[in-house]
């Protein structure tokens, strides 16, 4: 059972702030995804946890032990690197057993553990193969088995699937999730792919400019974004600046309804977060609906049809299933309807 607590962790590279002041508590057995765009500090945070970088300030505690006082080779942390970083001069079996030998584990225990991991990762029969001759997916499995060989307190993965094709990536994501549940190892997974984070994580930590924007379950960050960055970063959202008073919710002189539901107690200028799939599109002008616009873009993505609708100069995104009754073309005048008062308002905006 391994709990990781980060308190005020910060790191600078010259004048660049990689991590500002990161505090986070990760429960034992949790699968955390650090999500953010390139340069947001997610890999730096992972490297600090692994002991490959020193933080400028802050504390890290793993099961109550201060990590900053432990060199990387003394921390019991398994890590899968973006490049996988397999030892090219060692075969599969010796790659997996490397850490066990470094820790002085007996040959008998080492062999048993290697056999167990080979089976667990589906690499039976590959033990004597050179890692150089393996396929991308097999290399991934060796890297995972090697990191798990020491039964680490923490399992770190730094964008391990970024170089794989979509099919293999999906397959390995499912395998990793299954393995993590099976072993109940506390896992931190770095990715810039939000769908990967959504499908893997128990909790997603969204980083931006070295700060945590929001940490929450995939559902929370998707449905209840706390900042404008998260609302724009996760999925595709429409951000509408609305004015709320006792009687009405107004968007650019359009009356959206009376304040109720999530906006009932809010007043003044607010940012309403409307998911593209939360709206309905009507192909004909409907005077009873409040938002009217013109279709400026339409594309089919699998089972979905995505449209951009120009409403008083603001582009509003709409998504619906392809077999939807409503079919529109570029240039059509359309109407958007929605239960506006059920939508989420960004707090503090």
């Amino acid at each position: 059972m391994s709990e990781l607590i980060l308190s005020g962790v910060g790191k600078r590279f010259g004048k660049t702030v990689a991590l500002a002041d990161v505090s986070l508590q990760i429960q034992s057995g949790e699968f955390i995804c650090l999500l953010g765009s390139s340069g947001c500090g997610k890999t730096t945070l992972l490297r600090i946890i692994a002991g490959l970088e020193q933080c400028d300030h802050g504390e890290l505690h793993l099961d109550g032990v201060a990590l900053s006082k432990l060199a990387s080779h003394k921390r019991n942390i398994g890590m899968v690197f973006q490049s996988l970083a397999l030892f090219p001069h060692l075969n599969v079996s010796r790659n997996i057993s490397y850490g066990l030998k470094m820790r002085g584990v007996s040959a008998e225990t080492t062999n048993a553990r290697v056999a167990e991991l080979l089976e667990l990762t589906g690499l039976d029969g590959f033990e004597n193969r050179s890692v150089v001759s393996l396929s991308g997916g097999q290399k991934q499995r060796v890297a995972i088995a090697r990191a798990l060989a020491l039964e680490p307190q923490l399992f770190l993965m730094d964008e391990p699937f970024s170089a794989l094709d979509a099919g293999l990536r999906d397959h390995l994501q499912q395998e990793v999730k299954k393995l993590q549940r099976q072993l109940a190892v506390t896992t931190i997974f770095v990715t810039h792919d939000q769908s990967e984070a959504m499908s893997l994580a128990d909790r997603i930590v969204i980083l931006n400019n070295g700060n945590i924007e929001q940490a929450g379950t995939p559902k929370e960050v998707y449905q209840r974004p706390l900042t404008r960055f998260v609302a724009e970063f996760i999925g595709s959202n429409n951000l509408l600046d609305v004015d709320i008073d006792e009687n009405s919710v107004m968007y650019k002189n359009h009356y959206l309804g009376s304040p109720q539901g999530s906006v009932e107690n809010l007043r003044g200028r607010q940012t309403l977060v409307v998911r593209p799939e939360a709206m309905k599109l009507h192909a004909r002008h409907d005077a009873s609906q409040v938002l009217h616009g013109t279709v400026t873009m339409q594309r089919t993505v699998g089972a979905l049809v995505e449209c951009d609708i120009d409403v008083d100069g603001q582009v509003i995104k709409h998504t619906a299933l392809q077999n939807s009754d409503t079919e529109v073309s570029i240039g059509d005048s359309v109407t958007l309807s929605c239960d506006w008062t059920e939508q989420w308002c960004l707090p503090g905006e």
Binding site: G51, L52, R75, M79, A85, Y98, G99, R146, L150
Partner: peptide, 29 residues
């Protein structure tokens, strides 16, 4: 060279002063 290979050796319990002997030299053999 891919320095993450040497970093991987460190996370797997190799003291930094032994990494050149256990990893770097064998790779460049």
């Amino acid at each position: 060279r891919d320095k993450s290979v040497e970093e991987a050796a460190r996370t797997l319990g190799t003291p930094p002063y032994l990494v050149p002997f256990y990893v770097t030299l064998p790779i460049f053999r």
